[in-house]
Design a protein around this nucleic acid. Structure first.
Length: 536
DNA sequence: AACACCGCCAACCGCCAGCAT
DNA sequence: GATGCTGGCGGTTGGCGGTGT
């Protein structure tokens, strides 16, 4: 049984069936029997190879050329056999079960395609790799989470068990600590303090208290429950080449965080602030004025790239190294090098910016494969070295000129950071929100509905107008109240975003509404909502 | 109809580990 | 221990076909 593509190829090659026909890209290696052929295999070559393996078995691939006269190098023979001629190969599209299995395996293994293939009988590493690089990346470009929540939950649970069993003493990590451990403390997000200044509730008609009512612990726990793989997810979100697309989760991650964190996740009474966002990230830092100054001045450490007019100036290694394994080198193929939108890079850089000694050292961890467990490991490392992160990260990456930038200037730059060339809103909240709403049943390949969100309104507005009209901010404000009392503020949220987000928001908020009112049920929805909110 | 764009996928390339000499 | 060979693995490339404009 041959795959469709193979049939195509054979059909094509059947016209010219000689294995020695020179092809356009042939040449290169020279074997003992003449120039080794490259390019697509012909059915004759396949027959020769099959015959050889039937007689001699697998292995000793370099002998194929000598024994059979096949003008292919051993590597090519092995690859052809392994990927196409093996009798136990299962051809055809991946089944749903296989797809799920691939995702599960990728959570555990990263880009270990061969190992994954070993877990999927009849499937080759190349198949799995191609599958991942296409369909899964498509999800990324669409801004959809790579890993379904349930799989991530499972992975996190597994990791929790693993960590508790293997790495930590019994009293070291308790549940809460574990949860914290899975919350990534991203110093650069401390910069949300600046957002707080820019988008202070005092500027708005929204009671500040309503912005302070989201229990971070709830967000945290539920964010974990919802199981978006924190850093894994983040790190796998890349700017899209598709300018129509949501470009990246970074829009959703960063812009929203600013909108939400500045108000909704603070604990002024705590003496410290724990910023929690949907992916489980958090930033812990002193809330005293001194540190605030430093942190706020370091706001948008990622956007400094734009601020200093050098959006491409930094491509920190750690960002790439911390990526999900699947993207370890993808920056070169579809990532940052092509970035039609400055904001993409800026947002990207925002994530990448904490190029601290700690993170660098973390990235050098042998476990830093981008897998969830590696992420957990890094998290633990960061937790253990929290202070050093706080001290080194923001300021060290902050250009001096940015430090002296006025808040107005920063605010204007915010549009660059969050927005796209078309919209001052960028894709921030809308895309992310819709991304999560899409998780509940819509096609995974369906681009977020909010992509077409009309977003010209605020362009000519005042600062306040701009701020107030920011969907992420509205969403943040509304949903912070929404979280507290879904039945009360749903209308506000819906009114504010219905025109932008269409039915998705309505559906999502309705879920929140109903689930909240049913006391305890629909917790997943809650977490989704809060995820969306905090990312929005 | 022509063109451009994009996704899919087979194949190649470079690196590395294991093994034999 | 050093060297070379072989096979395995992961990343990348390039061709092809489908689709949209």
């Amino acid at each position: 049984m041959k795959s469709k593509s193979e049939e195509k190829m054979i059909s094509k090659n059947s016209v010219d069936d000689s294995p020695y026909v020179e092809e356009g890209n042939s040449g290169g290696n020279v074997g003992g029997n003449g120039p080794l052929k490259k390019g697509p295999w012909t059915s004759t070559e396949d027959a020769i190879l099959i015959d050889y393996v039937t007689k001699h078995g697998e292995g000793n691939w370099n002998a194929v050329q000598k024994c059979s006269g096949l003008a292919r190098c051993g590597k090519s023979c092995r690859l052809r056999w392994a990927n196409h001629l093996r009798p136990d190969l299962k051809k055809g599209a991946f089944t749903l079960e296989e797809e799920r299995r691939i995702i599960e395996l990728h959570v555990k293994m990263g880009n270990k395609w061969a190992r994954m293939a070993a877990e999927l009988p009849g499937r080759t590493d190349n198949e799995i790799k191609n599958y991942w690089n296409t369909r899964i990346k498509r999800r990324q470009r669409a801004g959809l989470p790579i890993y379904p929540p349930d799989i991530c939950t499972q992975a996190l649970n597994d990791n929790q068990h693993h960590e508790n069993m293997d790495n930590f003493s019994s009293g070291d990590i308790q549940q809460s600590d574990f949860l914290s451990m899975n919350v990534f403390e991203i110093p650069q997000f401390n910069g949300m303090e600046l957002n707080q200044q820019l988008y202070t509730p005092a500027l708005l008609d929204i009671p500040a208290s309503s912005l302070l009512d989201i229990p971070a612990s709830s967000l945290l726990v539920e964010g974990l429950d919802s199981s978006y793989p924190s850093k894994s997810l983040l790190c796998t979100m890349h700017p899209s080449k598709d300018p129509r697309g949501p470009e990246s989760m970074f829009y959703g991650v960063n812009a929203p965080i600013g909108g939400v964190l500045q108000g909704s996740s603070q604990y002024p009474n705590d003496g410290s602030m724990r910023i929690v966002q949907s992916f489980g990230f958090s930033a812990v830092y002193d809330h005293d004025s001194t540190s605030n100054h430093a942190l706020s001045s370091s706001l948008i450490p990622g956007s400094h790239a734009i601020m200093n007019g050098n959006p491409s100036s930094s491509e920190p290694d750690w960002a790439m190294k911390l990526e999900l394994p699947s993207l370890q080198t993808q920056m070169g193929s579809w990532g940052s090098p092509y970035s039609p939108l400055p904001s993409l890079e800026s947002v990207d850089t925002l994530i990448q910016s904490p190029l601290t000694e700690l993170t660098q050292s973390c990235s050098l961890s042998p476990r830093n494969s981008g897998l969830l467990d590696a992420v957990l490991y890094e998290s633990q490392m960061k937790k253990n070295s929290k202070n050093s992160c706080q001290l080194t990260s923001p300021a060290s990456t902050m250009p001096v000129d940015v430090l002296h930038t006025s808040s107005h200037e920063l605010h204007e730059m915010e549009w660059e950071v969050y927005g796209d060339p078309i919209s001052p809103f960028g894709h921030s909240s809308s895309s992310v929100f819709s991304e999560y709403t899409h998780m509940s049943g819509n096609s995974v390949d369906e681009p977020p509905s909010a992509e077409t969100m009309p977003v010209k309104e605020a362009e000519a507005g005042t600062e306040k107008q701009i701020i107030f009209s920011r969907p992420d901010f509205l969403l943040a404000s509304s949903c912070s109240g929404l979280y507290k009392d879904p039945t009360k503020d749903y209308s506000l949220l819906k009114d504010a975003f219905g025109p932008f987000l269409g039915d998705d928001l309505g559906k999502d908020c309705k879920q929140i509404d109903t689930s909240a009112s049913s006391s305890g049920q629909g917790r997943e929805h809650d977490s989704y909502a809060c995820n969306a909110v905090s990312t929005a």
